[in-house]
């Protein structure tokens, strides 16, 4: 990873008159943590990093930070936003363009071919965080952890994030500037998590998800972290009409999660943010990936690859599957 080139490019981009700021990653406050980094001028690029811990999808900020009310007497800042993206993140950008959440010309996409990210929880389990600053990078197929004097090579399979094991698009699907060489897409692992659930009896599946959904504390992190759950006024928050009661119980939690997953059907780019941020460890990615697979295999469609595509749920083909219809 050529960090110098990244920082140099970033400095050039943020210096442009038509760019408001650049969103990237920087080292977090402790251990392995990484934080989003908003860079408004060239000075900020020194802290910019790109490491196997930069798993967060920054595309979320395209809709989160934009369109805030403009104070009286001020003009809306309509300059471009520059954004660092991995393959999966770039799909979110493409899907946001499809859904008119952002215009292509309003974003400068800096693409980073992605050799795979680390599941921070797995890493912390094996190599607990300490107050010694840790550097992590790629070493061939594997990862290299440098902590003080220590240099540890961690086999890829040991800590690779699940979404990365299943990743079909490690290279950005769209970018204005690409840093680094395109990576060879790796052999995609079978989605054992989804298959495992599918293999269960209906009642067992119900029990499995009952246990999972019962854990939910309805913090809405999954929704808030999702780059495609961008409605400012989510229907699940509404009081008129009430789709889901606010009470935290299994019934309402289930209705919430079904609605969330359904709303992402044909839209989810499998960036895994929902599951990553869930504080109680609900395997939300499985719900999304199940529907993504249906859409891919039965409709031949993958969202977030083509910014010109017809939105899946807002289009149809006359010969769409209908074997389930009486």
């Amino acid at each position: 990873m050529d960090l110098d080139k990244l920082r140099k490019t970033a400095a050039e981009v943020v210096s442009r008159d038509d760019v408001k700021y650049l969103i990237g990653w920087r080292r977090g406050t402790f251990g392995y943590r990484v934080a989003p980094h908003f860079i408004e001028d060239a000075a900020g690029v020194d802290e910019l990093i790109f490491s196997p811990l930069c798993i967060a999808n920054l595309a979320n900020y395209l809709t989160l930070t934009e369109k805030l009310p403009v104070p009286r007497g001020q003009e809306a800042d309509t300059r471009k936003v520059a954004l660092l993206v991995k393959g999966c993140d770039s799909r979110a950008v493409a899907q946001l363009i499809v859904e008119k959440g952002i215009k292509r010309e309003d974003v400068v996409v800096i693409g980073m071919p992605c050799p795979g990210m680390i599941d921070w929880k797995l890493l912390a389990e094996r190599y607990p965080e300490t107050d010694v600053a840790a550097e992590i990078g790629w070493k061939g197929e594997d990862f290299l952890l440098i902590r003080g004097e220590e240099e540890i090579t961690i086999p890829r399979a040991e800590v690779l994030a699940e979404k990365c094991r299943l990743c079909r698009h490690p290279n950005p699907v769209l970018s204005d500037i690409t840093i680094g060489e395109a990576v060879e897409p790796w052999a995609v692992a079978e989605d054992s998590g989804v298959a495992e659930i599918e293999a269960k009896e209906a009642a067992e599946r119900w029990d499995y998800w009952e246990e999972q959904f019962s854990k939910c504390i309805r913090c809405y992190s999954c929704r808030n972290a999702c780059p495609l759950c961008y409605c400012e006024d989510c229907i699940l928050d509404r009081l008129d009409p009430i789709w889901v009661n606010r009470a935290v119980n299994f019934s309402e939690n289930t209705a919430f999660h079904l609605a969330r997953a359904f709303h992402l059907a044909g839209r989810c780019v499998e960036c895994g943010e929902c599951e990553r941020v869930c504080p109680v460890g609900i395997p939300l990615g499985k719900l999304n990936r199940k529907l993504a697979r249906t859409v891919r295999e039965e409709y031949g469609f993958e969202p977030g690859l083509d910014p010109e595509a017809e939105p899946f749920q807002a289009s149809f083909k006359p010969d769409d599957p209908e074997e389930f219809i009486l």
Partner: peptide, 11 residues
Amino acid sequence: KLLKELLEFTG
């Protein structure tokens, strides 16, 4: 169809 798949998947 998508809803049906989702419902089945959740048991």
